[in-house]
Write a protein that binds this DNA or RNA. Structure first.
Lengths: 223, 223
DNA sequence: GGTGACATCGGTCTGTGGGCGGATGGCGGA
DNA sequence: TCCGCCATCCGCCCACAGACCGATGTCACC
């Protein structure tokens, strides 16, 4: 919270490869104003330490055995909400980017960033500013593009009228067969719509889609 | 809305058995102040007519071919919210009662009610007052019993602490295996909890449970 | 000491959900 | 005109969800 000016920014490094941890750590320690509290090799350790040390910034790898970075990020934001998470990974596919952001990551860097950028991202993160790797930024913008007014931070992509209709029914607890009955279409078609909705919203199943609809205000308590 | 004093109460009868329809109709027509607009044999017809005629009260059978009464009630309340639905059926099992009430039925009568009670229930319904058959009322009270403060019209039964914990995770979009991981218990145990939650909330699957949690305010948009 | 609610775990089974790979026709913009 | 989005439909397939059966230990309450 109070990292204005001269105060030290504390960092926690999470990566299952020791080489990466040590490399990043060695570099960050040369940076004035940055202090690496610890580097750990698993999400579980990260959670434990984050709860204890409450680092300003967490550098998080995504692909790790046992608990992946997305899950670790989600839970970390629960136990230590004020820690800012920077994803540092080599993947720039949608299936990594969007879940990570939705899990609460602030910034998303690819491992080919040069050192000064990394240090800059850490300092920015401590101030709550996000940094997206250009390639990632491109994807995010592309997703945002085509969305209508997008109050604040809406769905990432626009749903068609029909899809919205299906989403509302999902968010009302309807099964595929019920939706088919109500819309007077085949269940296969419903499944197609549902699949499209899931991928557009970047969620994994209908329950998450329903939650999304409620959280995002598509649904209201009085319907 | 404006059925004070002398105005006529309009009624729609929905039942797949012609005999029942005619019997009920014949009786209601002897009642002063009541006017039967129509009697229909299917949910689909009921929806069409209700949208057109906007009856004050709809007498709804539950068990019907094609669209059952619960589904018909749900959709009827969408197309004609001011119509009050009285369920008139011969079943008093939970699996009929609770879905019907949740679908928007106001009153729930068993077919052994005597005529004067039926007429009374119709008049009460027109004023927005509910009537539950004694046997049904007993079940509902029994369900409500043990519930804590139950602001307004809460869950029908109290969930245990652990179940609430699981419900929150469901309402966050978590799968059984994720829940198991997070709570550090086996997936079998999670399934047990989920099953108990579903039956206590009288819903059919996890998505409906999630919707319930959001609708009922267990979940908030900022978690 | 019994009784019941709760949390934990197990097995088996079935239906549904959802992915993947197609196909069609309509319709509007380049 | 051709292309791409949308809505509709089809089949195959497998993992998950949830029902139903069971069990254990703990704990509070009477």
């Amino acid at each position: 919270m109070a990292d204005m000016g001269g105060e030290t920014i504390t960092v926690l490094i999470v990566d299952d490869h020791a080489v990466v941890r040590q490399g990043v750590r060695a570099f960050l320690e040369t940076q004035p104003g940055l202090s690496v509290l610890a580097d750990v090799g698993s999400g579980a350790e990260a959670l434990r330490l984050a709860a204890e040390l409450v680092p300003d910034v967490v550098l998080m790898d995504l692909v790790m055995p046992e608990m992946d970075g997305v899950e670790a990020t989600r839970r970390l934001k629960q136990v230590s909400p004020r820690s800012q998470v920077i994803v540092l990974t080599s993947y720039h596919q949608d299936e990594h980017i969007f879940p990570a952001i939705r899990a609460g990551a602030l910034s998303y860097l690819l491992k080919d960033v040069d050192s000064s950028e990394l240090a800059g991202a850490v300092r920015k993160a401590a101030r709550g500013e996000a940094v997206l790797h250009p390639r990632v930024a491109a994807r995010v913008v592309q997703e945002l593009h085509g969305a209508r007014q997008s109050a604040a931070f809406n769905p990432f992509t626009e749903l068609s009228e029909r899809e919205l209709e299906v989403l509302r029914l999902i968010a009302d607890g309807a099964s595929n067969s019920e939706i088919a009955e109500r819309l007077v279409i085949s269940e296969k078609t419903v499944k197609s719509h549902v699949s499209n909705i899931l991928s557009k919203l970047h969620v994994l199943d209908r329950t998450q889609a329903a939650v999304f609809a409620w959280r995002e205000g598509v649904m209201r308590r009085d319907s």
